[in-house]
Simulated assay, not measured.
Amino acid sequence: MPSPTMPDLVSSSAPVVLDTPLARHVLSGLSRQPRTLSSMYFYDEVGSRLFQQIMELPEYYPTRTEFGLLSRHRAAIAAALTPVDGAPLHLLELGAGDGLKTKILLRELLSNGADFTYAPVDISPSALQELSQSLSLELPTLRVQPLTAEYTAALPALSQVPGRKAVLFLGSNIGNFLPPDRLTFLQQLARHLAPDDRLLFGFDLRKDPRHIHAAYDDSQGVTAAFNLNLLTRLNHELQADFELEQWQHFPQYDPLEGVMRSFLVSRRAQQVHVGALGKTFSFAAWEAIHTENSYKFTLPQIEALAQAAGLRVQEVFTDEQHWFADVLLAPAE
């Protein structure tokens, strides 16, 4: 990615305040060409609610498909995660969200009498609070240790946990990483694993490009609202003055690279002031801010990625259409 430059940035006399990760990220992302903002900041309280709506849309196949395969393979997956010697299991989930799919595995583990603790990790405190409340009602005997953090901040704690550690990264979250960052993330994760630890990662598989595109450009406009909500968040948290009606959601799928990209496109030439940064950014008409990557995979790609990260594929669980895969990984021998 090009080094940050500031050709279209006008400084103001307001003091610069860079005391949050979001503020620092926005300064860096909007000061470079092309402009970019990370999808990790989609998930404020409103964004989390919008994503719940997205998962219920007829076009959005990933959640529905993974839910079905987890239901179908729940016994085999639970058995693969559970230590054979009866040792305690620490189940850490990165990007837990509402736990809809994870509850399938949690119920299976509880019914089998597994000795385990569930530690959901999410950057959204409200999402974790809602998840904890629902778990206390639906699965009152479950031991829960929620952690509000970014993914990488949760990794060092892994080495301090006794017994087997199993890390869940469900959904298609791994597809949001750029290829170099994806490998680095898996390598960092692998370094914190003992030989008996396990990973269960969700991978959205390549399929008809029309199905993929529709999932990110639904007819009801919920995905557009989800993308645009990022600007609303910047307005609220960084005192920006984005006019949402002057921006549009634009998704594009590249079948050669197997990546779905989402953008926010400026409908006209405009300037946006971000009060918390004391900066004004100039946008040309039809200039884009790149907000999301969602890579789709083949099984050979997954094998190669695991090997490069010091991991090995132990088992692959797929749906009947082979649209999605939950892959069980272990440290390489």
Rank of each mutant, 00 (worst) to 15 (best):
A80D: 15
P2C: 03
G202F: 13
P162S: 13
S159I: 10
S124P: 00
E303P: 01
R191W: 10
Q160L: 15
M6G: 04
S294K: 07
V259D: 06
F317L: 06
F242C: 02
H25Y: 09
F324L: 07
D319Q: 11
P140L: 06
E287C: 08
N293K: 04
A284V: 05
D19T: 12
L50K: 01
D115H: 13
D122A: 01
A325P: 10
L230F: 12
L277S: 13
L328Q: 14
P156R: 10
V274A: 05
Q301A: 15
L189S: 05
D208H: 10
P140Y: 13
I104R: 00
A23C: 06
D197F: 07
S159V: 11
Q321F: 09
F201D: 02
L329E: 06
I302V: 14
R164E: 14
P58F: 12
Q239E: 15
A75I: 09
V167L: 14
P300D: 06
A166K: 08
V84H: 14
R164H: 11
Q248D: 09
L91T: 03
A154T: 06
H236F: 07
L110P: 00
Q188D: 15
L27A: 12
L147T: 04
V10A: 09
I212W: 02
P146W: 10
D254F: 06
S262N: 05
H192T: 12
G29R: 00
